[in-house]
């Protein structure tokens, strides 16, 4: 009797581990352990020919804070980090400005068109990332219509011609382009749930279109705005390919410096320090967005209370 009941109790647990085990083991091996190795690498000394110096040398364990000291003592890295935050912030704001009318239109449109309009926002996101960057290389190209028009107008005012390609402007436009769908989706998901009766009531009480937007729609949409901001800001912070392809030398962001440390300078400990700082920044912002969004969930109920 007893052995049987034990096996009956353990069987679901066996099933659980059969299902959970393989993906868990894979992700531990190829995600968690590499991440921990990178943390360890940040405390080590760069090797003579790149990579890492041996962990044990002359019986001593090689762990130090040199790379962290370097990060905090050379102001150039803090500056590049600040510049990356600035670019990511600008990207987030421009995405918000472009995404809001798109999301509002989709949320307002009838059932028949809603799926199609939403699909049209997602579709470009599924095309290859490099193709989307390359498209802007063509548009901003020195011989393309845009550059000729802009420089024609500038020449008319007696201004020197400006290159559009390899500029901060090109980097920023492409950053916005690549991340736009990430802002539209959460914003739409939020706007779609809004109660039209609130807007009607505000209109009856004499609120104009701007007041209705600014005092009702926008505050209620804040959870969607925060979610979208996190989805845009975090990947934009770590980007390296866009400044690499469309930017000039002064557009180098933290992602470019990390790439350089790992593939060109081959200073792995310092590259790891930069990666860890980037991870902490990303996790901190994701956590912040989650907290703020949760705090704002109270808003609809407070509106409901105000209505009652």
């Amino acid at each position: 009797m007893k052995p049987k009941s034990i096996s009956a109790a353990t069987r679901p647990r066996v099933g659980k581990w059969l299902v959970t085990g393989p993906p868990l083991a894979y992700l531990l091996l190829f995600f968690a352990i590499p991440s921990l190795i990178m943390v360890l690498a940040s405390f080590r000394t760069p090797g003579e020919f790149g990579g890492l110096a041996p962990l044990f040398e002359e019986g001593r364990l090689d762990l130090n804070l040199d790379s962290y000291v370097r990060f905090f003592s050379e102001s150039i890295y803090a500056q590049i980090f600040a510049k990356s935050v600035w670019y990511a912030l600008a990207t987030t704001l421009f995405c918000l400005a472009l995404a809001y009318p798109l999301a509002a239109l989709i949320a307002k449109s009838g059932r028949r068109y809603r799926d199609l309009l939403l699909l049209l926002v997602i579709l470009p996101f599924w095309s290859n990332f490099l193709i989307r960057v390359y498209a802007w290389m063509i548009i901003f190209g020195p011989n393309a219509a845009l550059a000729r028009t802009v420089n024609g107008v500038l020449a008319w005012f007696g201004h020197e011609p400006v290159p559009l390609l390899f500029s901060s402007f090109a980097v920023l436009v492409c950053l916005v382009y690549v991340h736009l769908p990430f802002m539209v989706l959460p914003l739409y998901a939020n706007l779609e749930k809004h109660d039209q009766a609130l807007l009607d009531a505000a209109q009856d009480l004499g609120a104009n279109a701007w007041q209705r937007f600014w005092r009702i729609t926008f505050p209620l949409s804040l959870p969607g705005v925060y979610a979208g901001a996190a989805l845009v800001f975090i990947p934009a912070l770590g980007i390296f390919a866009i400044p690499d392809i469309l930017g000039g030398p002064e557009d180098s962001l933290i992602g470019n410096v990390i790439k350089q440390q790992f593939l060109e300078t081959r200073d792995w400990p310092f590259g790891s320090v930069l990666s860890i700082v980037l991870t902490i920044a990303a996790l901190f912002l994701a956590g912040l967005a989650a907290c703020v969004a949760r705090g704002n969930l109270g808003t609809p109920s407070s509106v409901k209370a105000a209505r009652a």
Partner: peptide, 27 residues
């Protein structure tokens, strides 16, 4: 734990996974 490990690779900037796997494979 699985939930964290499933979502984290999607949530963090891609470059971080790229460089940590580079160190991992080379080591």
């Amino acid at each position: 734990l699985l939930q964290i490990l499933v979502l984290a690779p999607i949530a963090i900037p891609e470059i971080l996974m790229g460089v940590s796997l580079l160190i991992f494979f080379v080591m």
